[in-house]
Every structure is written in C-alpha cells, then in structure tokens.
C-alpha cells in the first residue's frame, strides 16, 4: 500500500521504544517516604492487633490488686490502672476494637456510598439529582448529631457504633465517588465503550471501577481515621463501647479521675491512638501521591 520513503517504520520505532520507557520509569521509581512510614506503622499495628491475645503479657481483664496504679516499668510496660489491670495488655486488645470499628464503619460507608456515587455519576439526570439531594440532607446534619441520635435510640454496642459512623460517612464517600465518576464519564474511552454498546455492569466494573478505586483508597484511609476518632469520642461520652471492654476512648475516660495520680492510664491509650491515626493518614497521603492522577502526574 504505502511506499514509505526511506525511513522504515521499524527504524522509527527503534527510537520510539526506549524513549517511551524512559518517560514512564521515573514515575514508578519514586515511592514517597510517607507511604513507606505509613505502611510500616499500619503493618505493625495490624500484626500486633491480630496477635494481641498472644502478645499481651496479661489477660486484659486480670486485676492485680496489690499493683494498683503501678507506674510504667519493666513489669507493667505502660503501668496499671485503678484495678491493677495491665494498661499495655489492654492497649493491645483495644487496638483490635479500634481497628475493627474503623474497618467495619468504612466498609459500611463504602458499601452505601460507592454504588450510590457511581450510579449518580453514571446516570446523571433525575437519579443523580435525587441521590445527591438525599446525601446533601444527610451532610447538613452536624456529624456527631446523627450518631448520637442513633445511639441514644438503642442500646450501645460496637456494631451499632460502627453502623452509625458508617452511615454518617456514606455521603462524603458518595460525593467523592460521584465526582470521580463524572470526571471519568467525560473521558472518551467511556464514550468508546458506549459506542460498542457495552452493558452497564461491564462499564461500571471494568471501565470505571479500576479508575475509581485509587481515589477511593485515599478516601477510605480518611474514613478509617474519622471512625477511630469518632468512636473514641463516643465511648468517652458513654455512648459507644461499654465497660469493662478495653476500648481506648473508654480507657481515657476512666483514667480522667486519676489524671494527676496516674496520668499513664489516660495518656497511654491516647498515644496509641495517635500512632494509629498518623500511620493511617501517612499511608493515605502516600497513596494519594502515587495513585491520584490529579495530583500525581505532574509534567
């Protein structure tokens, strides 16, 4: 067909191939330090939480009557509380509760928010309008009010707290999903899929979802943090996990009365919580740098 002049296609490609690779490489090579630090903290946390019962030096509810208010030391790493319970062991068990709460609440909010957001962004029109108005109204509640209302109606428990926080977090997840979906919808590869007459589930699962999930991972890390913190506030106020559970918020609340005599009872769970939150936030920020095309791919 074509008589290509003198430059044969293969020769042109010989120059093209290494070039494209060299432009692609630097993006892969640089892993942000935030991601490394965050991922290590989160990994350690997950491992200790999973092995808490094994690692903990004492059962979390074992009382040592003679060692009440023992300060941190070799025997009790983080001291003991007013019943002589080992604070460090309780911290380990508490990490299970906190992470469980964070993960369950986030899963619930993603379970509600992601399909709603994708549907709203994909269908636009009336469905979009209806979904977004409902989410707007949910967002117009001061965040804590909705949770307090739900928890006041029923007897508090970890699952209910997770459920309440999950519902509360669904609107922001839905909004983010929708805006990312809308962004992608204007992408021409979406139109190419429609020009092939692809079915809805293929478009949503194969074309959209792989592009949405990086942004969602970042958002999910924020939501886990939010759930952990709000869960702590709720148990602090007495509406979350009930004693004698080794919940961090509850431990801080109980220790308040002895804050002058034995500050470690309250301070230790706070430090544990701070480490958890910073670890997850760093992980999220690192992920954002690597994954979010809107921030990452600077020329």
């Amino acid at each position: 067909m074509l008589i290509c002049c003198t430059a044969s296609p293969t020769r042109a490609f010989a120059t093209a191939v290494p070039l494209s690779d060299s432009t692609a490489l630097p993006r892969r090579a640089s892993v942000p330090t935030a991601l490394i630090v965050g991922a290590s903290i989160v990994t350690i946390l997950l491992v200790t939480a999973a092995l808490a019962q094994v690692v903990a030096p004492y059962p979390f509810d074992q009382m040592h009557i003679r060692d009440r208010f023992a300060p941190p030391g070799l025997r009790y790493l983080a001291g003991t509380d007013e019943y002589g319970r080992d604070v460090f062991s309780r911290l380990l068990i508490g990490s299970q509760l906190s992470l469980l709460l964070g993960v369950i609440a986030t899963l619930i909010s993603m379970g509600i928010g992601v399909p709603l957001g994708m549907l709203a962004g994909y269908s636009r029109g009336l469905i979009d309008e209806a979904i977004m108005r409902v989410l707007d109204i949910m967002m117009a509640f001061p965040p804590i009010m909705l949770v307090l209302l739900i928890l006041a109606i029923t007897q508090p428990s970890l699952m209910k707290t997770a459920f309440a926080i999950g519902i509360l977090s669904a609107p922001p997840i839905g909004r983010v999903t929708r805006s990312v979906t809308l962004d992608l919808m204007s992408g021409e590869f979406m139109e190419a899929a429609r020009a092939r007459g692809e079915r809805l589930h293929y478009v949503l699962c194969r074309e959209l979802l792989p592009n949405v999930w990086p942004v969602l991972m970042v958002e999910a890390s924020l939501r886990v943090v939010f759930a952990v913190l709000l869960g702590a506030v709720l148990s602090f106020l007495g509406f979350g996990v009930q004693p004698p559970a080794a919940d961090w918020g509850l431990m801080i609340s109980n220790g308040r009365a002895f804050v002058e005599k034995a500050p470690w009872i309250s301070l230790a769970p706070g430090i544990a919580m701070g480490l958890t939150v910073i670890g997850i936030s760093l992980l999220g920020d690192g992920l954002r740098e690597v994954l979010d095309p809107r921030l990452g791919r600077r020329q």
């Binding site: 943090v225 709000l230 702590a232 002058e260 309250s266 706070g270 919580m273 701070g274 936030s281």
Partner: peptide
C-alpha cells in the same frame, strides 16, 4: 497538622489540664 488530627480534641483537653492545671 498531623499532631492536631492524630487524637480527638478531648484528649488534648486532658493533656492541657495535666500541664496547665495539675
């Protein structure tokens, strides 16, 4: 910013009480 969001407000309240009052 990291320190600010790391723990809930009430915890900082407790720390401040410990430092400035106790």
């Amino acid at each position: 910013a990291y320190l600010g969001i790391a723990v809930p407000e009430f915890y900082w309240g407790l720390v401040l009480i410990l430092v400035f009052c106790s």
